[in-house]
């Protein structure tokens, strides 16, 4: 049973990894989707949704552009799987995710050295006129390397980690667990601030406050906020860029007034 469950998680981790590699980053790597899928397939959809929402919230701002940023996707999935398999609290997912993320960063450093070798293999293959090999290096070796560096740690940590986590989790006092839960909420704000820092400037900070105040005072849900935000953006766009065209009739009417004045004279 444990083996079957672990293999299901490994399968999800393959989708997670290939999302950004071969599907142009469709967000299937994000905790909200991987954890939900994990919950669905392991038979506890509610825990999957709860862990997915919590982890997504904590990592929403951590954009993985190029090599920068922290990739907590693998840690989130493993944390979620262990939560479901051991019946531990949702906070457990977070405490599993953090060390997994460190491990992931470490492993990716090793993989990145190999990927540079792949680039040179590609160069050499082209020089030798072996074009099929050059293509194979990119479209087969690359993704396979990424997948291997994901499924091995995922398999080991889910298969053997569940017991370890269970014994630790039962020994941790509740004030620590609720503290970790508070910490997760604080991390979410780190994520929001990260997003903010990439987009905000003196002229645009007012839109942040507009969204904040509307949500804070009205209690509207985020679907409503998102739609209002899009409408607001479109309105301001037309005011700024299309507004010039509507100035034409105004100018025309002015000249019409001029003509009237001329007639008076």
């Amino acid at each position: 049973m444990r083996l079957v469950q672990t293999l299901i998680v490994v399968l999800i981790s393959v989708i997670m990894k290939l999302d950004s590699r071969m599907f142009g980053r469709l967000n299937f790597e994000r905790p909200l989707l991987t954890c939900t899928l994990c919950g669905l397939l392991l038979g506890n959809i509610q825990v999957g949704l709860a862990v997915g929402a919590t982890m997504e919230l904590a990592t929403l701002g951590m954009m993985s552009i190029g090599a920068s940023g922290i990739d907590m996707n693998m840690g989130s999935l493993v944390g979620c799987a262990i939560c479901i398999m051991t019946g531990a609290d949702i906070e457990t997912a977070l405490t599993v995710a953090v060390p997994m993320t460190l491990l992931n960063t470490l492993l990716d450093t090793v993989a990145s050295v190999i990927r540079i070798q792949f680039t040179h293999m590609c160069d050499d293959a082209v020089d030798a006129g072996d074009f099929a090999k050059a293509k194979r290096v990119d479209i087969v070796y690359g993704p396979v390397l990424y997948v291997l560096f994901t499924i091995i740690p995922v398999f080991l940590s889910v298969y053997f980690g569940a017991d370890v986590v269970q014994s630790i989790a039962s020994a941790v006092p509740s004030w620590v667990t609720s503290g970790v839960s508070l910490g997760a909420n604080i991390i979410a704000f780190y994520g929001f601030a990260m997003l903010l820092s990439t987009m905000v400037n003196r002229n645009t900070v007012v839109y942040f406050f507009a969204g904040f105040l509307l949500a804070a005072y009205s209690g509207l849900g985020l679907t409503a906020i998102a739609l209002i935000g899009i409408v607001l953006a479109v309105i301001l766009y037309s005011v700024k860029y299309i507004g010039n065209k509507s100035a034409v009739p105004a100018a025309a009417s002015e000249s019409f007034l001029d003509e009237l004045e001329d007639l008076d004279n």
């Binding site: 942040f208 985020l222 209002i228 935000g229 953006a233 301001l236």
Partner: peptide
């Protein structure tokens, strides 16, 4: 960029107010 930054920042503002609470 103009449209994205307005819609994006508006939602980030809403997020700070409603997704996570302290």
């Amino acid at each position: 960029m103009f449209v994205c930054s307005i819609a994006g920042l508006f939602v980030i503002g809403g997020m700070s107010a409603s997704l996570s609470n302290l």
